[in-house]
Design a protein around this nucleic acid. Structure first.
Length: 690
DNA sequence: GCAAGGTC
């Protein structure tokens, strides 16, 4: 018997079905589905994993944060232990009868490692078991057929490269997290995490906040004139200078406006606007963010749509359709349901469909596209919004570019040059079917040089330069991809991690004081982990391992030595670190201004000496004895928001496995009971969608 | 209880 191992249960089922022409027989082994099929003359069993089945960790004796010096973790042994016990059991049992293992996990580095781990588990009872590799980029008849027709060798070096990443991430993450947390007494639920991906990501947000804080606005002035042709057509033109930095100059230009205008010259250009490229995970998150979905919400809903068979696999880097996807067939299928019939017709009436393509071409999965035509009624409103976005995006990638005409006219008004810009779409093509693309036609009439224009109004506007914008979750995911931080499957969870650590909040994202302090310390004393360079260097090392130029042990050892140097520096400044973080944490704990008359204290979180319970008190105690009660569990974050009902400060309570709870501190707030009831009805462990 | 990477 041959044993085929795939990365997930749903893929196992589809592979079994394709290889057997839907002749698979399902058996449950320790609750795990195993599909029995016949492949040529061979009996085969197909089993699906749940991603990684083993995790890395330090031995138990290192688990107490207070008893182990973080530095001792650097050279500690690293163990691999099962994550999903039933799958490991089932795998071992089925492997007992196997003569060969075929690894059919995702065609990427982690897929190779997941497959290698599964093979090692399978070998346990069967020391002669060898492994082959099926490589495919889409679970379609043709791709699966050719992958199994020419099986390859499992790429051990590629798997070891993945293993190096696991070890290095664990060592650096655990050592620095424990050190920073212990140094500042931020322990238990308040611990301060540090990691190869999360820390550079946090640095992006903090750097942006610093830029905003340091930004000095400069005033400028804009001078406009409103004009009219003989035929009565009205339009606007702006002074050629656009921004006047001196008010006197703007006033001078403004006061000169009189008499009539004369067209100096007119320029027309026609621009093509290319259709959007096929969705991968990042571009889906970015687009969905602009219609109001957080990154986590997008991923949750997409996962749902995928599990129901409505869209293709949502975790992909690829932006180029693979040849085995029949774009025309999918369009025909979508046309039937009616909601997108117009767009489908436009696609199908082309003599040849030429799909757009993005810059990233990978082997992991196809781009995200609809796989089933589903009606609006059978989805929730959010599901439909996302599904519609994916369908429209898909259809637009199959349509020709739009064309936009731009007109620029220079107009002389009393010796000053004003510029009128107009633009209008002359060929809609894909834009017609993609309402998410915002384009507004700007009208200007047909003008000819020498034409005289009547002045009907003039204005001088006071403006000022604006600081750069904070990152939205979408923009952040995009930036992370650009810098190589995280993967398609983890970028949104990294953002969630930073939120649940109390480092950042909101969308756009604002860092807390402790986030600013941690980033400052890392930049100064552990620069390596605060920068995306650590990831790019790791990528190079992993490529080296995959090529066979270096070994996994050499790379991990080199990394350990580097961390030891970093720790020597950090230990020298432990007292400063402690001071700096404690100060920031204190500032984060200012809930708002005291509400008592004539008191200028701050409301802060305090702990009662008697009962050891926490509460909100005034910093002016004992002069002011104002207090508010607090929930005793969860992390407390000030939000700087005021309660809509009673205007008292609102705090956010974050408890692991629960949706964040926004709470007004006023015990007598009219909305309080209702909010608390809402919170209580959420079960622990329930997934938060924002 | 630490990370980041899979998947649910």
């Amino acid at each position: 018997m041959k044993l085929i191992i795939s990365e997930k249960e749903i893929a196992a089922k589809r592979i079994a079905s394709i290889l057997s022409g839907n002749g698979q027989k399902e058996e449950k082994v320790y609750g795990v589905s195993v599909y029995h099929i016949k492949l040529g003359k061979d009996e085969c069993a197909v089993i699906g994993l749940k991603g990684h089945i083993l995790k890395v960790d330090f031995p138990k004796e290192y688990s107490n944060w207070f008893k182990v010096d973080p530095v001792d973790l650097i050279d500690a042994e690293i163990e691999k232990t099962p994550i999903h016990k039933n799958i490991v059991q089932a795998l071992k049992k089925v492997a007992g009868d196997a003569s060969e293992v075929i690894i059919a996990t995702d065609f990427d580095r982690e897929g190779e490692l997941i497959g290698y781990d599964a093979w090692q588990v399978a070998i346990g009872k069967n020391s002669l078991l060898n492994a082959k590799r099926a490589k495919f980029s889409a679970i379609t008849n043709s791709d699966i057929g050719s992958a199994f027709a020419k099986l390859e060798k499992l790429d051990l070096n590629l798997a070891f490269a993945g293993r190096a990443r696991q070890d290095i991430d664990l060592i650096w993450g655990a050592v620095l997290t424990r050190f920073i947390s212990l140094a500042s007494y931020q322990v238990k639920e308040n611990f301060l995490s540090v990691g190869r991906v999360q820390s550079p990501t946090l640095t992006l947000i903090v750097d942006r906040e610093m830029e905003i804080q340091a930004f000095v606005t400069t005033p400028y002035w804009v001078v406009n004139v409103k004009l009219k042709t003989d035929r009565g057509e009205e339009f606007e033109a702006t002074h050629k200078k656009k921004r006047f930095l001196k008010k006197e100059e703007a006033s001078k230009a403004f006061s000169k406006i009189s008499g009539e205008g004369e067209v100096l010259d007119v320029n027309e250009t026609i621009r093509s606007i290319a259709p959007p490229t096929p969705f991968n995970t990042t571009s889906l998150i970015v687009s969905a963010n602009s219609i109001g979905f957080t990154a986590a919400k997008t991923i949750n809903i997409a996962e749902n749509l995928y599990m129901n068979g409505y869209i293709s696999y949502p975790r992909t880097d690829n932006t180029v359709y693979t040849a085995s996807i029949d774009l025309q067939e999918i369009t025909k299928m979508l046309k039937v349901s009616g909601s997108f019939a117009d767009a489908c017709s436009d696609v199908l009436k082309q003599s040849k469909i030429i799909p757009s393509r993005g810059k990233k071409r990978t082997t992991d999965h196809p781009p995200i596209y609809p796989t089933f035509s589903v009606s609006r009624q059978s989805l929730s409103s959010d599901e439909w919004k996302l599904y519609e976005l994916i369908v429209r995006r898909f259809l637009c990638t199959l349509l020709p570019p739009a064309q936009i005409k731009s007109i620029t006219a220079n107009i002389n008004v009393s010796g000053e040059v004003f510029v009128a810009n107009g633009s209008n779409i002359i060929k809609e093509n894909w834009i017609k079917h993609y309402p998410y693309y915002k384009h507004e036609d700007v009208y200007i009439p047909n003008l000819v040089p020498g034409q005289k224009l009547k002045i009907i109004d003039r204005e001088m506007l006071d403006k000022e330069t604006k600081p750069p914008a904070r990152y939205t979750q979408g923009k952040l995911v995009e930036k992370m991809e650009e810098l190589g931080l995280g993967t398609k499957a983890t970028r949104h969870t990294i953002i969630q991690t930073l939120i649940s650590r109390g480092y950042i909040r909101g969308n756009p994202l604002v860092p807390s004081e402790k986030a600013i302090a941690v980033v400052k310390i890392l930049k100064k004393h552990a620069e390596k982990i605060s920068s995306p360079d650590m990831t790019s260097e790791l990528e190079m090392d992993m490529d080296g391992i995959a090529r066979g130029d270096e070994t996994k042990d050499e790379v991990v050892e080199k990394s350990r030595e580097m961390l030891k140097d970093v720790m020597v520096n950090l230990k020298n400044v432990k007292a400063d670190i402690s001071q700096e973080i404690k100060k920031a944490v204190k500032e984060d704990f200012i809930i708002g201004k005291c509400r008592q008359k004539d008191c200028d204290g701050n409301l802060i979180v305090r702990v009662s000496k008697k009962s050891k319970k926490r509460f909100i008190g005034c910093s002016a105690y004992p002069k002011c004895t104002s207090t508010f009660s607090l929930p005793q569990l969860g992390m407390i974050l000030p939000t700087k928001d005021k309660c809509k009902r009673c205007d008292y400060p609102v705090i956010r309570i974050i408890t692991k496995g629960r949706k964040p709870w926004d709470l007004c501190i006023n015990g007598d707030c009219p909305g309080k009971d209702e909010k608390y009831k809402n919170y209580k009805s959420k079960k622990p462990g329930q997934k938060s969608s924002d």
